[in-house]
Design a protein around this nucleic acid. Structure first.
Lengths: 415, 415
DNA sequence: GGGTATTAATCCATCTAAAGGATTAAAAAT
DNA sequence: ATTTTTAATCCTTTAGATGGATTAATACCC
């Protein structure tokens, strides 16, 4: 779709989304504050806020601060106005998250299962979604976000990459999940979902340009450029798992052919099953013992990381590079430690607010958290025209209409 | 600047820019066609087109085609409604281009000069601009685009990179050039300018995502993402000249420490001055003789190119990678030839409209051509809110006002 | 050749959402 | 107690897209 014309209705919706998003992302802001940020006039802001309050999306709280004139009435998101679900489909299991509109987590669930058969997986997701929804049955669900490994090949997407996942290709995942769960679903790449989570509630809050390196069973980079995910033409941007490494970083021996940074590579080096070492506590224990194979893996990947960071920096010029994924914090910290000193790049500047390389703040479930944010982004972000929610779909989906009548608002009319 | 609110005026300007840009970029389009593309209503389109015609920016020509109903009146840009100037500041000289609004080239000039002193350079640019403007003295000049090597360090930009160019840092180049030439100036990185030129009039027409590798005295990549240049947080995106190469591609000997792909590297390997081999015909002659050093340089850089392309593809997922710069076409073709077969990457897909790697269509002056397009983009692109024209400036600049009263339109009012 | 269908473009009235200017309300400063 | 300052709202205006009807020019059909 090329660029479309604009009109009043679009302006109005854009402004309402903008105000909603500003209220949601802050810790209470007055109409006056919103006027300053948006450049809209006080009257306009008053109207928009009234509309949001009428829709029960926003509440007003009076705060008495030692300021000069009339006290500002602070606006906050009404957390109970809705909830969002997020599921991270990983190779050996699912993680589900339920959170309210304020981003407060209401429930979390982990399921171990083989996901090779899409039908079974759909059932597992539907069950998980139902259980999570029962935690807060009164909150209207805004939608379901799904984070998963994706690789768009030729005409259609491959999900939960090869080998053995052929049944997933050519499957319109979003529509299948919608049918199974009865909720609008949004698919996103797991690294990108994790990047969004850290962007909105983690280490990267307030940044507009950054890269999230997400290591788990595979390896991917979630790239945030100018505040929105960089997807590439075929939605494959950030597929750094496919990079070719120089000889000295290729990693041979037992782990030859494994994806760098991955659990699978480490498992191969350890001579164990990746599912086994992914179990909670296992890697922490190995690290506490300073297991020599683990140390070798850390060294190898720290050297890779050093190179990778300079590549990403010189190509994308991000404010920082965040490392996260399926590994315990101690391992990621160690990896980052060993990656320093970093290579020269455009990012090696004296004055910067963030370190060039740092660990994510949300831990291994970042992708699931990011997934849960997707419905909120789809409905509430003013950038929605720049975002595409076409992954895993055969048809585009329109979130605007849903936003307009969400959260028990008096349904305008049911055209 | 964060996201701002929208309003009617903004919608109107956006739509007018959109229509202007669609008319400009096509080969004649009717109001009806514009309605189909933009989704605006016929009446709205009629109003906007009338406005553009009243401003003398657009002309109507009747074309009789064997279609059913009333004949469509085709709209075209009025080429004489204005002209744009572009200058490419390279290390050893300047290239200047003058073109009309339809993109037709009206004049071109090349000057060899040392540009170490900014004052002298400003004078040289001013002289060149004056001579070019005298080619078409009646066309109002919309502005001056300037393409140059840029590297934003810390607070301010370094231009025409090190060493020996210290006088250029901390200089607000745009404002200095504006003062010298009396025209609004827009600075852009040379690789990005070349990328824009190929995007709008060269090999990459119609693409939304691609990378332009631009090799000359230095090396840079112009990245087009979603139709607009990807700049990065500090405007340093695409600075691939700073990449660290693996041992086997580092290139040692006489050329150690030189930027890969660069004229300087080749000059060092040949034991000659880079200015010397940059002279027209020199490299072509060497290539015709299959000079053994040149062949070695080609082989080395083809292997680098093979790696670089896979990096860019896996990170950015572009539709294609275009190679251009200060080298004759024969050399670039040979480089590309030798780079095949390319490495595996997300871009290795069966179905694609463009080859993964190809040569630019505009030759060595692509950066100057792109520079000349900058004023047109600044005034006419509907994306203008997503573009920043802050390079080389201490203050932002507002192009909207200029657009509104451009081209001898009845100056609405001079508030 | 005349009537009809089809399409392009425009006229006039309406509607939407932001902006302008004045007003009310609540606090702090004097 | 009066004045100043600031927040938020009321009423009116305005810019610009939209809807429906109209005019105009062509091709198609008999």
């Amino acid at each position: 779709m090329t660029l479309m014309g604009s009109n009043h209705t679009y302006s109005g919706r854009y402004n309402r989304r903008l105000v909603f998003d500003l209220i949601r992302s802050g810790e209470g802001i007055s109409r006056r504050g919103l006027v300053d940020v948006t450049g809209l006039k006080p009257q306009t802001m008053s109207n928009i806020c009234k509309d949001l309050i009428d829709r029960s999306l926003v509440v007003e709280t009076i705060r008495l601060e030692g300021a000069r004139g009339a006290p500002q009435k602070e606006l906050r998101i009404r957390a109970e106005a809705g909830c969002c679900l997020g599921v991270h489909i990983d190779r050996d299991g699912l993680v589900g998250i339920l959170c309210d509109l304020a981003g407060q987590e209401l429930g979390r669930e982990t399921v171990s299962a083989s996901l090779q058969d899409p039908k079974d997986t759909m059932r597992a997701i539907a069950g998980m979604v139902q259980r999570l929804q029962s935690v807060a049955p009164d909150l209207p669900a805004w939608g379901l976000g799904v984070a998963m490994p994706t690789l768009q090949e030729a005409e259609f997407e491959h999900h939960v990459g090869p080998p053995g996942w052929d049944a997933w290709s050519r499957l319109p995942v979003a529509e299948a999940i919608e049918e199974a769960c009865g909720l609008p679903a949004i698919i996103e790449n797991d690294a990108t979902a994790a990047a969004l989570a850290e962007l909105r509630a983690g280490r990267a809050v307030g940044l507009s340009h950054y890269v999230h390196i997400f290591a788990g069973h595979g390896l991917g980079a979630g790239i945030i450029n100018d505040g929105v995910p960089l997807q590439g033409f075929w939605s494959n941007a950030g597929e750094i798992g496919l990079l070719t490494w120089p000889q000295e970083l290729a990693g041979g021996g037992e782990a030859a052919g494994q994806t760098p940074f991955s659990l699978d590579e480490l498992a191969a080096m350890l001579g164990r099953e990746s599912r086994e070492i992914a179990a909670p506590g296992q890697l922490d224990a190995l690290y506490r013992q300073r297991d020599s194979v683990l140390m070798r893996w850390l060294d190898l990947n720290a050297r890779r990381l050093r190179l990778l960071v300079s590549l990403l920096e010189n190509i994308l010029d991000p404010q920082t590079v965040v490392v996260g994924g399926h590994f315990p914090a101690a391992l990621i910290d160690s990896l980052i430690d060993r990656a320093y000193p970093l290579m020269p790049s455009v990012s090696a500047r004296g004055h910067r607010d963030m370190p060039r390389l740092c660990a994510g703040a949300l831990g291994p479930d970042a992708a699931a958290i990011g997934a849960a944010m997707l419905p909120l982004i789809a409905h509430g972000s003013p950038d929605f025209r720049r975002l595409s929610f076409l992954r895993g779909r055969s048809q585009p989906i329109d979130f605007e209409h849903r936003f307009d009548r969400v959260a028990g608002a008096p349904a305008d009319d049911d055209t």
